[in-house]
Deep mutational scan, measured.
Amino acid sequence: MVIEDPKTNKLIEVEKLPDGTYKVTIYDKKTGEKKTITMSKKDLEKLLKAL
């Protein structure tokens, strides 16, 4: 799943891993910076609600 946040000009890509956690990659379209973090479903839901 890919989500675009027009306010921050970032793309957020979410991928479910076999162990039940989620790999979240955040791309900054302005700088080209890429950050990848792994989080639980509960933390991911908090992140998505904040957008």
Rank of each mutant, 00 (worst) to 15 (best):
L47G: 00
P18I: 13
Y27F: 09
M39W: 02
M1N: 02
K23E: 13
L17I: 13
E13F: 04
K7R: 03
L47Q: 01
V2N: 03
K41C: 15
V14W: 14
L17N: 05
E4S: 02
M1H: 09
K23W: 13
E33S: 04
I37V: 08
T25E: 05
E13A: 05
M1K: 00
P6N: 07
L47R: 00
T31R: 04
D5Y: 02
E33H: 14
Y27N: 05
K10E: 13
Y27C: 02
T8W: 05
K30W: 14
T25M: 12
K42D: 15
P18A: 12
S40C: 13
L17K: 03
E13H: 08
Y27G: 08
L11P: 06
G20L: 09
K23R: 12
E45N: 06
T36R: 07
D5R: 00
V2I: 09
K16D: 09
K41H: 14
K41G: 12
T38D: 11
M1P: 09
L48M: 05
L47M: 15
K49F: 05
Y22N: 11
K34S: 12
Y22V: 02
I3K: 00
K10F: 10
K41A: 13
T25Q: 14
G32S: 04
D28N: 05
K23T: 05
T31L: 05
V14I: 04
I3Y: 04
K10C: 11
E33A: 09
P18V: 12
E45L: 02
G20D: 09
T8N: 13
K10D: 12
V14A: 11
L51A: 13
T8V: 09
A50H: 10
I12Q: 02
K46W: 06
D5M: 02
K34H: 10
E33Y: 04
K46N: 11
I12L: 05
I3T: 14
E33N: 08
T21A: 10
L11C: 03
K35L: 06
D5F: 05
N9Q: 06
K34L: 09
T36G: 07
L11R: 13
S40V: 14
M1R: 00
T38C: 06
K35T: 12
K35Q: 14
V24G: 04
P6S: 04
E45Y: 02
E33P: 01
E13Y: 08
E4R: 00
E15K: 11
T38H: 12
V2M: 02
G32Y: 11
L17R: 06
L11S: 04
I3V: 09
V2A: 03
K29R: 07
K42F: 14
T38S: 14
K41T: 12
E4C: 14
E13S: 08
K30I: 08
A50T: 13
K16I: 13
G32N: 07
I26C: 12
L44C: 05
I26T: 07
E45R: 02
V24I: 04
T31C: 03
I3M: 02
V14M: 15
T25G: 08
G32C: 13
L51D: 09
T38M: 12
D19Q: 04
E33W: 04
Y22R: 02
E4W: 06
T25N: 05
I26F: 09
I12E: 09
G20W: 03
A50L: 04
M39Y: 03
I37D: 12
S40P: 13
D43F: 02
T8D: 14
K34I: 12
V2P: 11
L51V: 11
A50V: 08
K16R: 14
D43G: 06
I3E: 10
K46L: 14
G32I: 00
I26S: 12
T31E: 14
K23Q: 14
I3L: 04
K23G: 06
L11N: 09
S40T: 15
T25R: 08
T36M: 08
D5I: 03
D28C: 02
M39K: 04
L11K: 08
K46E: 15
G32M: 08
V2G: 03
P18L: 07
Y27I: 15
K42L: 15
M1V: 11
S40L: 15
L47F: 13
D43A: 06
K29E: 12
K23D: 06
K7M: 11
V24C: 03
M1Y: 01
S40G: 06
D5V: 03
E45Q: 03
P6E: 11
I3G: 05
E15M: 03
